[in-house]
Amino acid sequence: MLAGRANTTELSYDTFYASDPKTLVLSCLGAMGNGKSSLLNAICDEQIYRTGRGAEPITKHVESVLRPWANPPISRYCQFIDTPGMCDSSVRDRENMQECVRYFKSLSFGVSAFLLVFNINDTRLDAYTQNMLNLFEQLLGREFWKYVILVFTHVDENIRDLLEDNIDVLEDPNEGFVSELRRVFKLDKRTFDPPMVFLPM
């Protein structure tokens, strides 16, 4: 079937994969500057999304591309959705998330997984982070937690001892990051046990 589409335009190619139930749909969510765009660029093995540092967000609207999963290579097409970073501005954050929700609702088969991106050097569930996650839950629904993958970025391999200590703390079954999420958001251990990924970007 795909061979017969080799000469189609990029638009129709994207339309085909966007409406294919086998296409994975991944969306990055998180605070500004935690590496959401860099993560998606790494998975695509292509500089698709703009990245940078500064006081103002680089990604200001929902951006989406369809690409094969390239790193590591698997034989699946994916729709990668980058979203504006939460920036502790209640009005702007709510507007950004409302745009995200509208986009998610327009998808043929919804979102396969939400990549919640955190900087490993700042994993406190402080008031700002709790408000951000509360907003996600409020606008995406309680079911949102079932599709969460936790991604920790800025993992520095050069400070191995500190890195291992940080990871051990995050993975602690009684007092770690997931346990704290369960406590704060009243999540059931039987249904909320998300994968945790640690990346250097």
Rank of each mutant, 00 (worst) to 15 (best):
F198H: 07
D88N: 10
F144R: 02
L139A: 03
W69A: 05
V148K: 04
A18R: 00
E175W: 15
L139F: 04
R67N: 00
C28L: 07
T59M: 05
D14L: 00
D165K: 15
A31V: 12
V148N: 04
V178R: 14
L24S: 08
H154Y: 09
L170M: 12
Y128L: 14
C44G: 04
N121C: 15
E180V: 12
L162S: 10
P21H: 03
S64G: 01
S64L: 02
V197K: 06
F109Q: 05
Q47L: 10
C78G: 07
A55L: 13
L115Q: 05
V65M: 00
P21Y: 02
C87M: 08
R5F: 01
T129F: 10
I149C: 14
T59R: 03
E99N: 15
N131F: 09
L170T: 13
D126I: 14
I159V: 15
E157Q: 13
S19Q: 00
N7V: 08
T9W: 00
L116N: 09
C100M: 09
G33D: 06
D193P: 08
I74Y: 06
W145D: 03
V91H: 05
I149E: 02
N121M: 12
K36P: 07
E157C: 11
E56D: 12
E143I: 11
D88V: 09
F192Q: 02
Y49P: 05
N41P: 04
N34L: 10
D193N: 14
R67W: 01
R67E: 00
L150G: 08
G110W: 01
P194Q: 04
L115K: 07
P195R: 14
V184L: 10
R94A: 09
T23G: 02
A55C: 15
T15S: 01
I167G: 15
T83N: 02
L116P: 04
K189M: 10
C87Q: 12
F109I: 08
L163S: 14
I159P: 00
V62D: 00
L135M: 10
K189Y: 11
K189N: 08
R67M: 00
F185L: 07
N131Y: 12
S64M: 00
T129K: 12
G30H: 06
L39I: 09
D156V: 12
K186C: 15
E137H: 03
I48H: 03
F198T: 07
S89H: 13
N134K: 11
A6V: 08
Q138M: 08
P68Q: 05
N131Q: 15
L11M: 12
R142I: 13
T123R: 11
E10T: 13
R102G: 11
W145A: 07
S75F: 11
N71M: 13
A55N: 10
L11R: 05
W145C: 09
L163H: 12
S179A: 15
N174Y: 13
E56A: 15
Q98L: 14
K22T: 08
V101N: 06
L107M: 03
L115P: 06
P84S: 06
F185G: 15
E175T: 12
Y13M: 02
S90K: 11
N34Y: 11
L139Q: 05
P21S: 03
Y77R: 03
D20C: 01
V111I: 08
G4Q: 02
V111C: 03
E137R: 08
G141C: 02
R102H: 12
L181I: 14
Y77T: 04
L199N: 11
A127I: 12
P57C: 13
M196P: 04
E164S: 14
I81E: 01
S90R: 14
V151R: 04
A70T: 11
N34P: 06
